[in-house]
Nucleic acid binder design. Sequence first.
DNA 1: GGCCCCATGAGACAAAAGTCACATACACTT
DNA 2: AAGTGTATGTGACTTTTGTCTCATGGGGCC
Lengths: 228, 228
Amino acid sequence: MSQSTLLNYTHSKPLIQTVPYFHALDDDALRDVAQEMVERRYQIGELIFMEGEPDAGLHLVAEGHCKVYRLSEGGREHVLATLGPGDSCNEVPVVDGGPNPANFAALEDSTVWIISAEALQRLRRKHPALNDMIIKNLAMRCRQLVKRVYNLSFLSVTGRLAAFLLERSDEHSALSRRTWTQDEIAAHLGTVREMVARAFKELNAAGLIVVDRHRIEIVDREGLAKLV
Amino acid sequence: MSQSTLLNYTHSKPLIQTVPYFHALDDDALRDVAQEMVERRYQIGELIFMEGEPDAGLHLVAEGHCKVYRLSEGGREHVLATLGPGDSCNEVPVVDGGPNPANFAALEDSTVWIISAEALQRLRRKHPALNDMIIKNLAMRCRQLVKRVYNLSFLSVTGRLAAFLLERSDEHSALSRRTWTQDEIAAHLGTVREMVARAFKELNAAGLIVVDRHRIEIVDREGLAKLV
DNA sequence: GGCCCCATGAGACAAAAGTCACATACACTT
DNA sequence: AAGTGTATGTGACTTTTGTCTCATGGGGCC
């Protein structure tokens, strides 16, 4: 288990104000928030909290990357989101008191800030601007989820891969972040590795992408967009 | 197009306070909300608003039933939710300013109350209790959507039908609300009518349900639960 | 260089889902 | 009572997805 350290203001403030999540907060609010935050470090692969367990608090990724995911009976994994610095998760149980809706684990050695539901409750009362942030964030998550339902229900694996590639590529170019394995992509698309391999082959054969030794280059954005 | 009528306080108050959505509001807030609500009536089958269009405002179903749904290229329909009296939808664009995430249409002749984003913005500032309601509602929607992603990605059609039946049946008994056609159920499960027919046959053969002339009786709740 | 691990490519097969076609049953109208 | 339109039951077939298995290949480590 990771040890927890209470942050003091001077520690966290420089970092905290870089988080888009807290952009709308004034210094006063920022200081109060920082005082309620607990910092924890997790090693690569480590489980941060589990679905079904009582509310683990609001989590903010400070460093590293983590994944939000669910597991099937058969042990298959569906990754709902990959979070990087500045991204948050688990606001749902924090505001409705229910259990965590998904698992959360570190993909790399990561630093995470945690605010308990009770602390957030207090902070919200004192700084109503926090309400807006929570609302914005929940709305964003809803949009993501609606899109995912659409993809799962209407698109083939190839179509979902096309959407995946378009989403995480800056104009014309290759994939950002570290390289993704086909297994990881499969977990994002709700399928298995072999299907991802076939879908890559298909997009390649159709001339929409070029796979140059593990570097994926998008050749035809419009063509990909037609598949989603 | 339906005509719109501005509600006055005496009209809407008796109705408005029955809506769970507004339970936490005091009389003062309730009156303000009522004054911003516009009532519209829609006929069976009528489209209320469309996905992709600019924010249509917060919608509250007062009478009748409506569906929130998306359509595929091929014209297949996926129903995200069926709403009855007291249920709300479209808070996402209202709070983030984006387009409507889905279509909304009347399943029966229905009465709907609408609050524009601007009005809600004003109301939220004046009555912070509204923030809590919006947050609770968005959180609930997130949970529903996460569950749906899980079902789509991990469960067979039979499993999804089992989950569907369990969700909308009170203890031991038959389906509530009006009767569902297999087409409607298919649209909820993200599949086609024929698959629903086969899934019913399978659950029937397994002794988990009994289909008695369009009335579906759940015989073995635990058995169904094992499929989800 | 040689070795090993892990990611990928790929074929054969099985299972699930979707499509098409048509028969049947039922509810409501006339 | 007959007729019509819609909902349902069902079989044959295609397509898509998933499983299993093994070959290939590159990167890092000794």
